[in-house]
Write a protein that binds this DNA or RNA. Structure first.
Lengths: 170, 170
DNA sequence: GTCGAATATCTCGATTTCGAGATACTTTTT
DNA sequence: AAAAAGTATCTCGAAATCGAGATATTCGAC
């Protein structure tokens, strides 16, 4: 055990608080979506197609925040259930366009509003003004962190100050 | 596709922004931890034991934000690697106390500082003052959402405004 | 004190997610 | 226009995570 000089380490505290807040709110999201027999990721796909219309797989992937292999997996399931269809794009023959089927549109159209309400309730502890404030801060935070990832991808794989001796790595 | 009256729906925007920010920052966390051949959850266990000392499993679980079955799974792995030990608690015979072994302490002691640095960099896009501001807002948001979960657990399972007709549920 | 509710941990099977790479195509460079 | 680099999607196997429930123990109300 080590003394917590974290007492005033705002950056670390921010990371912890962000994780906790996300977890708490996400819980509501999961629960709300589960009512309808969908997983969070499946819902995400339906939702983005609902709001943005036909989209390439890669675009959907970017928006639902999972890896490409997971996207394929989830889309497969939705296609099997007849909620989404795949179609090749004329312009770029690598891309596959996704769109809702009529059944998919009906489903998400019925599900989305109550889910949105659940999410509004989930964040309602924060008064409107502070919500807006939080959006601004989180947007900057997210953009900054994402940008940093891009930078680091073009830098050396960044072996840090310390590496564990071979014996204790696995 | 549906027109986005989301234009000014701050609560929903907050949820989306929160998710994006978390994802972006978490990416750094994962990458940083992966350098040392650990998973995020394994790291979490080591870290909490490092900073808090011996703890019951349930306490660790609460802090690393995963379900109890996952906690067992991760702790198993750490025990097998000789980084953590399990020991029964005298007072409450349901409880199992977790603690770092000397090897575990050495490992996390070497890994934690560079990881903490990585996380400080990850959130550094936000100036100090705004970080503090964000911590306050996120804390309130998280507390509020968590409290709401507790309330709802004591309420009826809350079948919402709408339910899909049996045919389209699975 | 006893009985029922709550809590702590674990087991087991199923699902989800990831990561590394294959493949096919497009864009950029030379 | 050929080579190289980049992008989009998918496959496959491994790993992480969950959820329901089993078991043991403790707490709380009566």
């Amino acid at each position: 055990m080590v003394e917590a000089s974290q007492r005033t380490d705002t950056p670390l505290k921010l990371w912890v608080t962000l994780a906790r807040a996300f977890d708490a709110v996400e819980h509501h999201s999961r629960a709300s979506i589960a009512r309808f027999g969908l997983g969070a990721t499946e819902f995400g796909v339906l939702e983005v197609l609902y709001h943005k219309g036909r989209l390439p797989v890669c675009e959907v992937q970017r928006r639902i925040l999972v890896e490409s292999s997971s996207t394929t997996y989830v889309v497969d399931k939705l296609v099997k259930r007849g909620l989404v269809r795949r179609r090749p794009s004329g312009r770029d023959r690598r891309v596959v366009l996704l769109a809702l089927t009529p059944a998919g549109r009906r489903l998400i159209g019925r599900i989305f509003p109550p889910h949105a309400n659940a999410m509004r309730r989930a964040v309602a502890a924060l008064p409107a003004r502070q919500q807006a404030q939080a959006v601004r801060l989180l947007r900057a935070l997210g953009k900054g962190a994402a940008a940093l990832s891009l930078v680091e991808r073009h830098t050396q794989p960044h072996v840090e100050d310390v590496l564990p001796p071979a014996g204790e790595r696995r």
